[in-house]
Structure formats: structure tokens, C-alpha cells
């Protein structure tokens, strides 16, 4: 499975930049969500859930999501529904992470890394190939 690792977490970028294709977003968790939403609108499917574990929206500034590089001819309805619901969920919670100390930020980076680490080996081992997909797309 060829995938993008979309993240705004430097620690994830450092750990995976040479192992897979990282799309680093220099911005907030909301910016990551918007990047993912745009990819879904272009026909890509989500491989991981955009809400991170049971960390509450607005609690952690970091977000890492895997997106399938192969492009569907039409928008994947499941991915579209999921990303829209997640963005709504995010908007429901107020941002709590502003002004966090470096030590607290480092903890959040570490947990975000750990959550996405649990999915990357599965994505790398995933041999699913969907007929009709344009592998050179995007």
C-alpha cells in the first residue's frame, strides 16, 4: 500500500521521513484536517481514523493520519463522511493547547507518534489493490 503520512508533528516527521512519504503540514491540527479533507475530495481514501485515540479534540496540537495514495475515480463516501464528522467534532471542542510548556508539547508529540506507529506496519504490509485505481494519480 502506498500512502502519505500527513502530520504536523515534527517527531513523526523525524521518525518516518526516510521510511515513507510524509506530507508535513506546518500548521495546527485543524490545518492537518483540512489537508486531509482536500485529499479525500480529490478521490483519496483515509487509512486511519482522523481523531487521535481518545485524546479529546482541542487537547492535543498534533495530528497524524495515513491517506491512501491511490486515487479513486469518484470520492470515497466513507472517507468523506468520516473526515466531515471529525472536523465537526473538532469544532465542537475549544482549543486547549495554546501556551503549553515544551515538556507538555513533547509528551503530546510522543503520544501522537505512538498512535500512528501502531498503524504504519499494517499499512506497509497491506497488499490491497483496488481494480480501476490510477496508481500514478496525484
Amino acid at each position: 500500500m502506498e500512502f502519505w503520512l500527513v502530520t504536523n508533528n515534527e517527531k513523526v516527521n523525524d521518525a518516518y521521513a526516510d521510511k515513507c512519504d510524509v506530507l508535513f503540514v506546518d500548521g495546527t491540527d485543524r490545518d492537518v484536517m483540512k489537508t486531509i479533507r482536500d485529499l479525500v475530495h480529490e478521490g483519496h481514501s483515509l487509512l486511519t481514523h482522523p481523531l487521535s485515540g481518545s485524546l479529546k479534540p482541542g487537547e492535543t496540537p498534533f495530528r497524524s493520519v495515513l491517506v491512501d495514495k491511490s486515487k479513486n475515480e469518484t470520492v470515497d463516501p466513507f472517507s468523506l463522511d468520516l473526515i466531515e464528522t471529525c472536523i465537526q467534532a473538532l469544532q465542537k471542542f475549544r482549543v486547549r493547547y495554546e501556551g503549553l510548556s515544551e515538556r507538555k508539547l513533547e509528551d503530546f508529540r510522543h503520544v501522537d507518534l505512538s498512535i500512528i506507529e501502531s498503524a504504519i506496519p499494517t499499512a506497509m504490509a497491506d497488499r490491497t489493490r483496488v481494480v480501476g485505481v490510477d496508481r500514478n494519480g496525484a
Binding site: T48, L66, S118, A119, D126
Partner: peptide, 8 residues
């Protein structure tokens, strides 16, 4: 309750 959607 895994992160990877195919696992779910």
C-alpha cells in the same frame, strides 16, 4: 478499537 480503518 484500532487506529487503522481496515482493522476496524
Amino acid at each position: 478499537e484500532n487506529v487503522y480503518l481496515a482493522d476496524k
